Simulated assay, not measured.
Amino acid sequence: MGTANRIRNVAFLSTYPPRECGLATFTQDLVQALDAFDDLIKTKVIAVSNGDYYNDPRVMTVLSQYDKWSYLDLAKKINESDIDLLVIEHEYGIFGGFCGDYILELIKNLRVPFITTLHTVLPNPTFKQKQVLTTLGAASVKVVTMARNTVKILQNVYGIDSSKIEVIHHGVPFRLLESRDKLKKKHGYANLNIIATFGLISPGKGLEYGIEAIAQVVKDHPNTLYLILGKTHPGVKSEQGENYRQKLAAITGWLGIENHVRFIDKYLTKEEIIYYLRLCDIYLTPYLSKDQAVSGTLAYAVGSGRVVISTPYLYAQELLGEGRGLLAEFRDANSIAKCIKYVLDNPDKKSEMERRTAKLGQNMLWNAVASEYFELFLKLTGDSKDTGTKVS
């Protein structure tokens, strides 16, 4: 069989459902989109596990997150398998060791080419964080990043050759749903301005500033409701319990806006995320870190064609340019409130922002994103198993 027609086996190393994290959902969505795209690519998953149980037939094996020997054993399994290409979905917190450096034990012993897809790109990494990503980048045949503004960081900070770097959007799902007004009415939100934030809750999300902004907005727009959707991040909960959520609830009480802020304490399914984005008027991300290179929640909001108000972290600056949203100052409730009021006071401007956002969102739908990965995989698995720079 010629290389043009043979099936390529591509394995993804990542967290995977039922584990509750954005990376797991991302990987599940990508492999499903690839499976629906073309039968020349056969996808498999190697699940990074912390005691999770998997019943998805795509999961070929697991990697024990905190067991260093598991990384060595996995390299052997991959080398002896029919896998043509490995895709490492990289996030510092999902691999064991110091700054996730156990992943280096895997790639040092791997004889199959691999791509590294980056979910975090730090412009000012610690020494160890830089070492891990620099080593991964040197050994990868390609490095995929989801934001153009990270390309120079990868080149200048991590020394990754520009020829290796590919920019592919974070994918977003598409669903045909009823209109915003119909969904609002169905959920008891008729005639309300709905502002929403979703995702795993942690102090870095800056939600206290969003709540303080709502206290100002409701003075002029009393029909406004802020939905804070999501459970506390498991890592935060294990260390601090529900302290942050309780702090947010207390702020809401002190400001006397209990009727204007609603906490929905659950891990949202993909369908629920899409549903809430469809019915909301404004999506808000008041994050505190200016260096955040990628945000899955922001990608979903843009993919849904929603007006986004955000603090100006890297990814927000990139996605919300050209009139697709508004940027507020970091840690500044007054600035956030001013942006919200502008949108609510100017429905024509709101509609224009939604049109601009929806246009970009079309390029971020999973079928479009899967097409780009598909072409990349075919190019890399044509007739060579040559890896990048060998790790010593």
Rank of each mutant, 00 (worst) to 15 (best):
K42T: 04
V217T: 02
E329F: 02
F198V: 02
V87N: 13
D29Q: 15
P113D: 02
K68T: 02
T389D: 10
V217P: 00
I46P: 03
G204H: 13
G241L: 02
N9T: 12
K186N: 09
G100D: 09
Y276S: 07
A301T: 04
P173G: 14
K108S: 07
I153K: 03
D35R: 01
V87Q: 11
G325D: 07
R324Y: 07
Y313S: 05
T43I: 08
V261C: 09
E242K: 02
A368V: 13
N5C: 11
K68M: 06
K390T: 15
G51L: 07
R58S: 08
W254A: 09
N223W: 08
I211H: 08
K142N: 14
G382K: 13
G100W: 06
P347F: 11
L104G: 05
G137V: 00
F114K: 00
A147S: 15
E178Y: 09
E208F: 06
G305R: 02
P113H: 05
L200D: 07
L227G: 06
K68W: 04
Y53V: 15
Y275Q: 13
Y300V: 12
E352F: 09
G305N: 02
I251T: 15
W254V: 05
V151W: 07
K184A: 12
L118V: 04
K142W: 06
L378R: 15
E318Q: 08
R58E: 04
S371Q: 15
L118P: 01
A299N: 06
T15W: 05
A328E: 06
T61I: 03
R262Q: 12
Y313M: 10
G199T: 03
S310R: 01
H119W: 04
D56H: 09
I201Q: 11
L122A: 09
H260C: 10
V172A: 15
D39T: 06
P203A: 10
V144F: 06
R324C: 08
M364S: 03
D386N: 12
T15V: 06
T224Q: 11
N363A: 14
V45I: 10
M1H: 10
G137C: 00
P347N: 10
I251L: 14
N55K: 14
S335H: 05
V132T: 00
A4P: 00
N193A: 04
T381M: 08
N334Q: 14
H233S: 09
K219D: 12
Q362E: 15
Y16D: 02
A333F: 05
K68V: 04
E352N: 12
E271L: 09
Y54K: 13
A24R: 03
T43V: 14
S392E: 15
R58T: 04
K379R: 09
L365T: 13
N259G: 10
A337P: 01
V343I: 15
R355Y: 12
I195W: 04
V261L: 09
T61K: 06
I103G: 11
R8G: 09
G96Q: 04
A293I: 00
A4I: 12
N156D: 15
T389N: 10
S384Q: 08
G93D: 11
T387Q: 01
Y102N: 14
G305Y: 01
S351T: 11
L13E: 00
